[in-house]
Amino acid sequence: MKLLTCFKLCPDMDKLRQQDFEISGGKGLETSFLPNMINCFDESGLEFGIRLSEKSEGLEPNIEKTAFTIGGDASEMYLRTLKALGYEHCVLVKKDEDEFRYSPCMVAQTIAEYVGENPQDIIVMGKEAPNGNNSATAQLVSVLTGRPLISSVIDVKFCDDGTLTVTVTNDGDVYEQTVALPVVLSIGNAVISKLRVPTLKQRMKCKDLPLEHFKPAETSCAMFPEPMRAVIPDRRRGGYLSPYSGSEAVDDIQGKFLKGRLGEA
């Protein structure tokens, strides 16, 4: 059985200070000085990939795992980590993030082309990534590869009989579904959010193993209109700071702002 997990590297936005906000290239934020991280939904997918391939309760699934990413040189370190964790194939498509941030079509077509040459039974990826926030790649991969999509997956496992069981959410309700293969899984707020950590010895063993590079055909797609403009939101409300504290502050705010506020529909 073959399993493909796609992931994207993102800047760690928690480390962006208010004073460092700056538009870059007219359509993005300047984040080149921020540390990277694997998109959290993809990271869950990568850990699921490992768990699905582990022997469990008498089941010995023979799964060939591939980790796949589109990005720059910074991705190599993460692919090596995945190699150390047992991903048999670690594939990099070298491309600058600016080129595909708002082009989920390009990303999906690249993945679909790879799958065309390397058929997969299970394709896993996060439902969205922070920069582009397109929330579209999994759906497009589903259509392009002709594999049905399961959305908002929060847990995955094989049953004793070898069928795949997924746990999905739908606006707070949780369901368990058994699904036929092949399938595309779009990962939501999963029960696990972190990839396990390889030992130093595992990393040393894989240090010089080759990564695979994939060069897709040039594609174009007009489905998602490019942004015309990017604006840093000004969320300031010019807040009134009560000069009082305790009960006096409550009286102050109550008198100035709250009285009658709930009245209108």
């Binding site: 969320r235 010019g238 807040g239 009134y240």
Partner: peptide, 29 residues
């Protein structure tokens, strides 16, 4: 604070009792 319409700079414990009660009163109207 800057993203709020109004703010009280204080420990919530000093404020929340009276504040919540005032919201209940408002709701009751």
């Amino acid at each position: 604070i800057a993203q709020s319409d109004a703010a009280i700079i204080d420990d919530y414990k000093n404020v929340c009792g009276k504040l919540l009660d005032s919201l209940v009163d408002l709701y009751a109207t």
